[in-house]
Design a binder for these strands. Structure first.
Lengths: 207, 207
DNA sequence: GCAATTTGTAGAATTAGTTCTACATATATT
DNA sequence: AATATATGTAGAACTAATTCTACAAATTGC
């Protein structure tokens, strides 16, 4: 069986780099590309994909819900989430949603290669990157948020207003306001600049 | 003369992808790599680099000050800033700091290739729409504000809302809204988080 | 010294956002 | 299993904020 691998990332350079690595280690693999969630779903519908390597921040579906949908369509699909974002922020949510592996873009190519092999061969991969929290007792306040609150919080930090968020997530505006209140409550803050500051302090990437 | 090109990015996949593209279009180029600002400075000190392609978010020096230091060490060095961040937030500051080009990672490889050629051949590259200003010193965007706008701006960054500000300064609320609009216009931004970010960058720059 | 621009200021009309309440489902606790 | 808490969601009524327009005073540019 020759593996069919989908590379989903909106950065051309990342797609290019990944495809070269994969062609190198899996010459028989058939590669597909997607730059947004719609294309991804199309590719998924068409063929029997073996593995999908996905960026977190894909236009059309920036969140872990994407993973649930993909696994629903094709449960045996292997999914590697490949992201620039801080790990303890995202990894658990993606794994919970059904991803097989969460890797940070900072990892070396050798680690990536091992990870791809492991996932394809159904071996568990102990990603060096995952769970090396030098936890000095500091609780990351962002981890207190529920999935939906987290989504709203990310959009708030990006500068979206309540109504923009409610359109983006297809929710009522009072719903978004409720999330906003709960976010502020959980974090013990009352203003957007405070939220931005918390992100600065706890997140290593701009979301 | 064979070009010596430094690729500075903390993402292995981006370094890899860039190096493949550059080897393709400039087979004679000698490539160097850096994953943090210290290594970058080391490489810069060692040889006569022609071009540096740098990620914004390099560990050790996340801001445009990096560019000033690099140009100070070697004024004829060409610098391309290659970033995932929103352009109107960062581009002008990087250009003012001495970068020759600011590109977003979303661009297609062909654009990147053209940009590299243009910069190496000292041709202006159209895609940026950013003109170099004669002004050597960096303009602090906050200094563009009038006195009243500055007062309002400071309160906004502190997290006060429009009505709180209009009580604090004893102004009508539409007046405060007008100031807010003018502040955003002058700074080329449209959201509070962007304003907060500008304040942080300004503070980082003068410290 | 006169014209052009910037600055300080708001009213009226409109749009955005919050609060309070509520309820079903999911998850955790005992 | 029973209970408690957390999560996802929103309607009705309200408050906050923006937009569009406007205009006088100060400042800048030629």
């Amino acid at each position: 069986m020759l593996p069919q691998i989908l590379i989903a990332d909106d950065h051309s350079i990342v797609r290019h780099g990944l495809s070269i690595i994969i062609r190198d280690i899996l010459p028989d693999a058939e590669l597909f590309f997607a730059t947004n969630f719609d294309t991804l779903l199309q590719v998924l519908a068409e063929g029997k994909l073996t593995l999908a390597i996905c960026d977190v921040n894909m236009p059309g579906c920036n969140n872990f819900h994407m993973v649930q949908i993909m696994k629903q369509i094709q449960p045996e699909l292997k999914i590697i989430i490949y992201s620039a974002y801080d790990e303890n922020l995202y990894a658990n949510r993606f794994i919970k949603a059904g991803a097989d592996l969460y890797l940070q873009k900072e990892i070396e190519n050798q680690v990536l290669i091992k990870a791809i092999h492991s996932v394809l061969e159904q071996r568990p991969f102990a990603a060096t990157a995952i769970h090396e929290e030098a936890d000095n007792g500091m609780v990351n306040p962002i981890s207190l948020l529920s999935d939906r609150e987290f989504e709203v919080s990310n959009l708030l930090v990006k500068g979206l207003g309540t109504s923009e968020i409610c359109h983006t997530l297809d929710l009522g505006k009072t719903t978004v306001s409720t999330y906003k209140r709960r976010i502020y409550e959980k974090m013990g803050i009352s203003t957007l600049p405070e939220l931005v500051t918390i992100y600065r302090n706890y997140v290593n990437a701009i979301i």
